[in-house]
């Protein structure tokens, strides 16, 4: 009996070993290594790194563009999270009834999710192009010349344009997720409330929202954690961080430091600061996931 137990135990460890090795080698070791490099001055190729203490962090703190990039990242993350979930919840509630063509709606709005950010970026760069883009030429055709904008070249609105594209790509996804959540609410619950004379807003507040909390919180957390770090492709393809750093996000600035300026120590210091910002949202997401899986 003892040996059988021991064999089970060894088998279990052997089954987990590849996953643990992969996670250690390509997630946790690099994280630790990044923290270590951030304390050094290093160009990325030379064999010797020079001990630099916390001076990289001091340099980052004094780098106005980094703070601007971090601020833009935060604006981006909050704006897309709010927009995707508010819009998603609104559309899901509206569509949570028998409607002809709901299948078509799902197919269509979910489509951008399978598209690459690079293609999406190229497509929307053209739509926003001031001379031959779809948007401005359309506005001119309609005689709305006053609305014509340099959507990506005007520093005041460029970030908003990029945010709109990200929302375009993901809202369909959130509608589908939230709609699935709405459909798990028992119909009897809603009917009972309606019979008791509850108004629609009351039903929404007192029943729908609490019942939706697990799905909604997951939807919110997913868009939030994703938004901090998945904006690189879109910004890189559409604006490259410009004009005049108006759409610079943390990741584009980090890549610039590492691969253009060869300030790898500083780039790692910025990465660690970004990690601290993301980790809070990530920890929250992890707790929700563990709780929902009954985290044994």
């Amino acid at each position: 009996m003892f040996t059988l137990q021991r064999r089970r135990r060894l088998t279990a460890w052997a089954m987990c070993a590849p996953a643990v090795m992969l996670a250690t080698g390509f997630i946790f070791y690099p994280l630790a290594r990044g923290a270590w490099i951030s304390l050094h001055q290093w160009d990325g190729f030379s064999a010797a790194m020079k001990w630099f203490g916390l001076r990289n962090y001091a340099n980052v703190a004094a780098d106005g563009i980094f703070w601007r990039a971090l601020g833009n990242t935060l604006i981006f993350a909050i704006a897309v999270t709010v927009a995707k979930n508010v819009l998603g919840m609104f559309l899901a509630t509206l569509l949570n009834r028998r409607l002809v063509g709901r299948g078509l709606f799902r197919t269509a709005t979910f489509l951008p999710v399978v598209m690459s950010f690079v293609v999406v970026g190229i497509l929307w760069s053209w739509i926003f192009n001031p001379t031959f883009g779809l948007l401005d030429s359309g506005l001119r055709m309609l005689g709305l010349d006053a609305w014509v904008q340099g959507w990506l070249s005007d520093p005041r609105i460029a970030l908003g344009s990029v945010i709109a594209v990200d929302v375009w790509k993901w809202t369909g996804f959130h509608v589908v997720v939230l709609l699935a959540g709405l459909q798990t609410i028992p119909a009897e619950l809603l009917e009972a409330a309606a019979i008791d004379g509850a108004s629609k807003p009351q039903i929404f507040r007192k029943i729908t929202l609490p019942q939706m909390m697990p799905v909604l919180s997951f939807s919110v957390l997913m868009s939030l954690t994703g938004a901090f770090v998945s904006n690189y492709d879109l910004v890189y393809v559409m604006t490259g961080g410009g004009p005049r750093h108006a759409t610079e996000v943390a990741l584009t600035w980090i890549m610039n430091a590492a691969f253009q300026n060869h300030a790898v120590g500083k780039a790692n210091a910025m990465s660690i600061i970004l990690f601290v910002c993301v980790a809070a949202a990530g920890a929250l997401q992890l707790r929700v996931m563990m709780a929902r899986s009954g985290g044994r």
Partner: peptide, 26 residues
């Protein structure tokens, strides 16, 4: 068992954006 599970899941908190440069080094 629980320690391994938590360890692997903690990876969710470390998106590749923030470790891209040390991953490059590795």
């Amino acid at each position: 068992r629980r320690a391994v599970y938590v360890y692997l899941l903690l990876g969710i908190m470390v998106p590749f954006g923030v470790i891209a440069i040390p991953v490059f080094t590795v």
